[in-house]
Nucleic acid binder design. Structure first.
Lengths: 204, 204, 204, 204
DNA sequence: ACGTAAACGAGACGGTACGTCGTGTCTTGGT
DNA sequence: ACCAAGACACGACGTACCGTCTCGTTTACGT
């Protein structure tokens, strides 16, 4: 999704013709970001983006499949979606760090609203859904997978007996997304601690 | 949302004029259901519903604000969204029963797809979002709240120390919705048992 | 058109049931008149008339075939469309009196605009056209016919040799309508005199 | 009205973007013509024209303000509305030629019906009325003006003493239009001769 | 007085067309 | 080959009126 899904790019072979305009690309992403902020996903249109960016619609269609893909790139451009996986030495420490970083991201209003819109579009447009799942959702799962794998490698006791790695991920991301999509309550540190209490109970 | 959100209904006062056509109402809901099944939410249009139902568009706009509201009513009409709250005597039993019943509902493909579409629309159209949250999401939370309240009344030990009622709900519904929206994995009995392991661990 | 074109009225036989409401009739005509004045013929709708008159649409449809018929009645109600045919003793005098009276009527802005609208509707709706022609246009021709017939009876020389009665009427009403429909110039006394110069030239 | 009333056309400056489709233009005018012939002005809709022409409604709205403007162009396309002004040497000859040519045109059923509809629409839609008056009615007056001016230049005696040029035009076109709009009688040569008798009486 | 019958207000109904917006595609001329 | 501009066919939107059809209410005649 971050890559050019546009015209074929025969590997190292230099192609003739005008190069892709970096100015246009930036202007389009900026325009998408602005319009979304001002008018929401419902107010985001390819025509609107083109007008604001001062480019033709064709230029957008050439490089992105849907406006959701544009918005996803715009989001990736503005906000660093990558979560650093610092190794704190303990499962609980790693998980707390992961959750805190993840929640900080998801609590930024603009980022949050965009992710909601993208998740929504993923339901309605199955093709975009596939792209969104692999390019975003799965990557976040993989990141959490590193934390959980590290704990297993260390020989730390599993968080709760009878809980698969996959289900832990479902619980973590599920709670996160549910808060954002359904209850619209903030993702605060208190929730981090409560999730830790469930998933990394300090044995006593 | 189930009630007529249309014209004013001065309480018991008999209003003049022709009554709302029950035939139209049923035909519209049935049409919405069919079209969604055949073409998905993206293929659901007010125009299409009207054509299939053999009614004018105005008749739809008169009684529903958006096509999402029509779809919600269609869903409520077809599928009994109410979850019976049987009292099994124990927190674990009640929770298992609740989860099993809820998951059964959410695992029906048609119901599942409709709920996804409605949740998506709730993100994109804030006004519908408000209606959907109060008319559906909150009611499900309230149902689970009965189970949890009953446990507390019985004096049963809380599931996990330091876990608020609200967060338990977030975990339950979050995991459920996440499976449906993000991973698209089925809601099976195994997940019920894993959630029980987390939220109602048998002390040993 | 002035008569009730509505339900059958079995001659002298007294029918049961509620009588036609004279209040409604007046309110409808008044409403049509007002709306036309404010918004023109394009802004005149049956729904608008009903709303303004405080009556149901059915009541309008019961007694008039089209909104043009309502407007025609409204016009007839407000403005006396009948032209008195005073006998001045001479053809020229009679004609001058007829033209002056006719022009005075057609120079009233509201009446003029309504006649234009009705003439327009008569082109577009052939059924109304027939009614309008017989109920209005033909009557005006007949009136002029009386003047011309009187002249002939008196043995006055025809206005111009080789000019049929019918063509005289065409010229008189044609010039009148053309001024109103096409050039929108006022119908003044100067035009009366010019027409007299053509149609009743004083022989010398 | 015959010119593009659509987007701006910066004089000689070449504008970017796709050019107007001549095919569409022709298809639209042909469709309007056909539909009018089959269903009359009441049956002429923008939607219908677009469907018949195989184009989008937007394409019609881009280049014409109302369906009446489309119809006017369609008429101008099909029928040569220009009247040749042959100089016969005498006022009477010129006028006879003008009237004969004009009547021939106005006696063609299709042309006649279209002109009636356009004249009607001109009453109902004032903006179109203005366009129709300047683009058609005034041009016809100007044509007759040439004939009358030529007579005056030649020093021919005025047709009737005390008759202004303007009133002669009113009488000619008024009689013509009145026949068409009101009496629906044909425009035959007999009428030409009668008008000549009035407006160009052979002195004896 | 009491039913039958018609007209009334209100307003929902199936339709048709409106004029607008956005989609994704396709020229066109310029870089 | 790419780009801005913009016309194109298409589909759906939400609105306005059309003319028809219930509703319950209000008169007015005929028993």
């Amino acid at each position: 999704m971050n890559d050019n899904p546009g015209p074929d790019h025969a590997a190292g072979r230099a192609r003739p013709g005008r190069k892709r305009s970096e100015d246009s690309r930036r202007a389009i992403l900026a325009a998408a970001f602005q319009i979304f902020t001002e008018a929401g996903y419902a107010g985001l249109t390819v025509e609107g983006i083109a007008a604001r960016a001062g480019c033709g619609k064709q230029t957008i269609y050439r490089w992105w499949k849907t406006k959701a893909d544009v918005l996803f790139d715009a989001l990736a451009q503005k906000s660093e979606l990558h979560i650093p996986l610092t190794d704190t030495g303990t499962y609980e420490g790693d998980l707390r760090a992961f959750l805190t970083a993840t929640f900080a991201l998801g609590d930024t209003p603009q980022v949050r609203d965009m992710l909601c819109a993208l998740m929504a579009e993923a339901q309605i447009d199955p093709e975009f859904g596939e792209r969104f799942r692999t390019a975003f959702l799965q990557r976040r799962r993989d990141a959490l997978g590193v934390v959980l794998g590290r704990a297993r490698a260390r020989g730390e006791p599993g968080p709760v007996p009878g809980l698969s790695t996959s289900t832990i991920m479902d619980i973590v991301f599920g709670t996160l997304w549910y808060r954002v999509l359904a209850t619209r309550e903030p993702l605060d540190q208190a929730l981090v601690e409560e999730l830790l209490a469930v998933l990394a109970p300090s044995r006593d």
